[in-house]
Design a protein around this nucleic acid. Structure first.
Lengths: 243, 243
DNA sequence: ATAATCTAGTTGTCTATACCACTATAATGA
DNA sequence: TCATTATAGTGGTATAGACAACTAGATTAT
């Protein structure tokens, strides 16, 4: 099960191992899992390493620790409603679906006047242009085009955009994402969009445009997305503002 | 600062200490905090104990760890992630347009099963049902249907709904509006909607459903609106939340 | 019978150490 | 000059061990 020679951290391997047990139902909700000492001995690793794995799963809501009693499998995850800046992937996972991404194109293009203005660069500056098809449980949900200044996030690759761009920007580049303004409007699918989304031309779609800024206020990206109207609902949780 | 004899865990004391530095602004956002080894030596504790404190604050979004570089103070947490809960009237005025309202109907109806569930009442309980046409500069923008439990807001009249319902609830009834959850989706106009909004049948529209709760958590209203897609853009400002 | 005590097992906290992986900079080489 | 190579500093992973705090059940004393 656990390979000590692997470059993959042991605690992470143990995490996956336990997660599998839970997801396959071998460990049922409410059931007590082996104690930390047992797990340590079973896999011939240190108890502190076991603790790191268990703690991570507990933080993620998979396990519940009870001092003096043991560690138990949590009841099925209750998803909290969306708040603030969530990515498509997070969003889909929150809805209990498996997110997917197909990168349709990845290029560097010169900034048009409009994009330059929106991104705070000069016209003609290099922008990454990424077109992605976003899937939920394998079904096309949205067609997305995003623009990011090359100067701001050098080193973006096709591999990266195949996963989470936000994660790359925060974890790898050390930039902190601040705020975003989104606009949403209803429209109808044009031919190209309809083909990618596998819907009829003229079917209702949701046009989303997002401008995201870094914490220091620099504009970071402009995203234009086309969501299919029949399968996607946009949810917003709001707290007290004006009356 | 740190009392090793205290029954309060050392890592927790260190957490509070660091949190205070951040909240008082002694450690500014983006700034690097002392390294784990420094913190350990400063307080004469083990580095692993320091790590536990730093990890917790990193998980809570106060700190950002970067391998090989250091640990940094994250951007400020904003309690109010969304600037939300604006009424149609405010919304329109913010866009520089003059809002208007035409009350199409005002009745008391028994709660259907679905509405009863959404509003936390029993089936058959009295609900106000209000249909309004919302205008901007005299042009129809949305068709709105709202449901409010009579028991919660007795004394609602046709006159009131001709103005701001929220204002009545807060100023006259002394209830405090808390939060709301909105869903948005794209669709096409049906016949009745098209007639009121003066658009073609089948034209793109935005369906909005809002469930508003009072500050004490009691559900207050369910609103279903149909916005015309050609004239209305929905805008959301989002700020960074925690974790 | 009831209450108090013990005991084994659990997670929680903490230490001291070691080495790895990564980053930035300084020193060194061609 | 420019690329390469050390080097020091950072967080990341992992170990073995110790004791504390807590729980539940068994044992003992009253």
């Amino acid at each position: 099960m656990i390979d000590k020679q692997s470059p993959i951290p042991i605690y992470y391997q143990l995490e996956q191992y336990m997660k599998e047990k839970i997801e396959k139902g071998e460990w049922q909700p409410g059931e007590m899992i082996p104690s930390e000492r047992e797990l340590a001995e079973m896999h011939d690793i240190s108890r502190m390493t076991v603790r790191q794995a268990v703690n991570n799963l507990a933080n993620d809501g998979y396990l519940i620790r009870r001092r003096g009693k043991g560690t138990f499998v949590a009841a099925k995850k209750i998803e909290q409603p969306l708040k603030g800046l969530t990515s498509f992937s997070e969003d889909m996972r929150a809805r209990g679906m498996t997110p997917g991404t197909i990168v349709l194109s990845f290029e560097m293009v010169p900034a048009s006047e409009k994009l330059a203005q929106g991104l705070g660069v000069t016209e003609g500056d290099g922008l990454y242009e990424v077109r992605r098809l976003r899937l939920a449980d394998g079904v096309p949900m949205a067609l997305e085009t995003l623009y990011i200044p090359v100067r701001l996030v050098p080193g973006l690759t096709r591999d990266v955009v195949n996963g989470s761009v936000y994660e790359f920007i925060e974890k790898e580049k050390g930039l902190i994402i601040g705020s975003a303004v989104q606009t949403l409007e209803a429209s109808v699918a044009r031919k190209v969009e309809a083909e990618h989304l596998k819907i009829e031309e003229g079917a209702p779609v949701l046009l989303l445009e997002r401008r995201t800024c870094l914490a220091d206020g620099r504009p970071m990206e402009v995203v234009k997305s086309v969501y299919r109207g029949d399968r996607y609902k946009f949810m917003i949780e709001m707290k007290r503002g004006g009356s």
